Simulated assay, not measured.
Amino acid sequence: MGEFEGQVALITGAGSGVGAAIALALSAAKAEIRLVGKTRDSLQDIAQRAQKFGGKAEYLVTDLGNECELSALTDRLARDLARLDILVQNAAVHIASPIAQASMADLDRHYRVNLRAPYALTRALLPLLEASQGQVVFVNSSSAIGAKPSTSQYDATKHALRAFADSLRGEVNAQGIRVLSLYLGRTASKLQRQIHKSENKPYYPERLLQPEDVASVVLNALSLSRTAEVTDIHIRPMIAPEGAAFI
């Protein structure tokens, strides 16, 4: 596969799960990738795996919830990136708590990582995306469609991310930029393992949506002819544990 040869892709939350799977799939399709995440070891591992496909892979260690680090990242990318064809906004935090016991600090972190960071990155990189008539992918959640008990903070920011993506699409389609939102059900990942633990439920990753499935769908949408734009994709596990919510 070489359909993305010569293109440059930036993926946030790229150290594991869906972000890593999308990054590796793009690299296998000959795109140059830039990885953003919090954990150096994880990013380094994904970069090394990607380089085996023969392409360029670099990583930037950044806590998107830290305003100073986010500002430094946007400044560096705007200064150093010569081009950008694909922006995948995947990073997110999920902290569950009933509203009565919820922490305002947790609400602020949800906002900073799940909404403010994607907004800031998109805004800073729009000139590059306009120049390449690029594509933006927002990895969202089924929580953006229906809110659930004990996840009000996460759900609210995912609803807001959906609104941001829809508004962005309306603004940039005329410049040739395509905007895709993915609404994922429960996906096998470190985060999902933590969620199951907090719910006191057994974790069976083989029953859940696989990151590689998501990556396959993303690459298919990105590679479509420019006569078409996929705006929203809903994906969930084929078989979910009884009583489980799709998030």
Rank of each mutant, 00 (worst) to 15 (best):
residue 102 A to Y: 14
residue 127 P to Q: 14
residue 59 Y to E: 04
residue 111 Y to L: 12
residue 92 A to F: 08
residue 85 D to A: 08
residue 61 V to I: 12
residue 96 A to R: 15
residue 52 K to T: 13
residue 104 M to I: 05
residue 140 N to S: 15
residue 65 G to F: 10
residue 53 F to D: 11
residue 67 E to F: 07
residue 73 L to V: 02
residue 118 P to M: 06
residue 120 A to E: 08
residue 84 L to W: 08
residue 135 Q to W: 04
residue 111 Y to F: 13
residue 52 K to W: 03
residue 140 N to G: 12
residue 76 R to P: 02
residue 119 Y to W: 13
residue 56 K to L: 11
residue 80 D to V: 09
residue 114 N to T: 07
residue 133 Q to W: 00
residue 106 D to Q: 12
residue 75 D to W: 06
residue 51 Q to D: 08
residue 51 Q to R: 13
residue 85 D to Y: 02
residue 81 L to G: 06
residue 99 I to T: 15
residue 120 A to N: 00
residue 90 N to E: 03
residue 84 L to T: 08
residue 137 V to D: 02
residue 90 N to M: 07
residue 109 R to Q: 15
residue 82 A to Y: 06
residue 60 L to A: 14
residue 52 K to N: 06
residue 134 G to H: 12
residue 75 D to I: 08
residue 61 V to T: 11
residue 114 N to D: 12
residue 76 R to D: 02
residue 86 I to N: 09
residue 116 R to D: 03
residue 94 H to M: 13
residue 82 A to N: 10
residue 113 V to S: 05
residue 94 H to T: 03
residue 112 R to S: 14
residue 88 V to K: 09
residue 124 A to Q: 04
residue 124 A to N: 00
residue 73 L to A: 05
residue 56 K to I: 09
residue 106 D to L: 02
residue 111 Y to E: 08
residue 55 G to V: 14
residue 130 E to R: 14
residue 97 S to R: 08
residue 114 N to P: 06
residue 126 L to C: 09
residue 92 A to Q: 13
residue 56 K to V: 12
residue 112 R to K: 15
residue 57 A to C: 05
residue 64 L to A: 09
residue 83 R to D: 04
residue 97 S to T: 04
residue 130 E to L: 10
residue 52 K to L: 12
residue 101 Q to K: 13
residue 118 P to R: 02
residue 134 G to S: 13
residue 85 D to I: 08
residue 54 G to Y: 07
residue 50 A to P: 00
residue 79 R to S: 15
residue 94 H to E: 04
residue 117 A to R: 01
residue 102 A to S: 14
residue 89 Q to D: 13
residue 97 S to C: 03
residue 56 K to F: 12
residue 99 I to Q: 11
residue 105 A to H: 11
residue 120 A to G: 00
residue 87 L to P: 07
residue 95 I to C: 01
residue 74 T to D: 01
residue 78 A to N: 12
residue 74 T to P: 02
residue 80 D to M: 06
residue 126 L to E: 06
residue 57 A to E: 05
residue 125 L to V: 04
residue 137 V to N: 11
residue 59 Y to W: 14
residue 85 D to N: 14
residue 67 E to K: 12
residue 122 T to E: 03
residue 53 F to H: 15
residue 119 Y to Q: 11
residue 92 A to I: 11
residue 79 R to T: 11
residue 63 D to A: 12
residue 99 I to L: 15
residue 125 L to N: 08
residue 95 I to K: 06
residue 106 D to P: 06
residue 88 V to R: 09
residue 138 F to K: 04
residue 97 S to Y: 01
residue 75 D to K: 15
residue 104 M to T: 09
residue 89 Q to F: 03
residue 107 L to S: 09
residue 95 I to H: 10
residue 109 R to T: 14
residue 107 L to R: 03
residue 83 R to W: 00
residue 126 L to A: 10
residue 101 Q to C: 09
residue 65 G to D: 13
residue 50 A to D: 01
residue 118 P to I: 01
residue 125 L to F: 06
residue 58 E to Y: 06
residue 53 F to V: 03
residue 141 S to E: 00
residue 75 D to G: 11
residue 59 Y to M: 06
residue 103 S to Y: 03
residue 50 A to I: 04
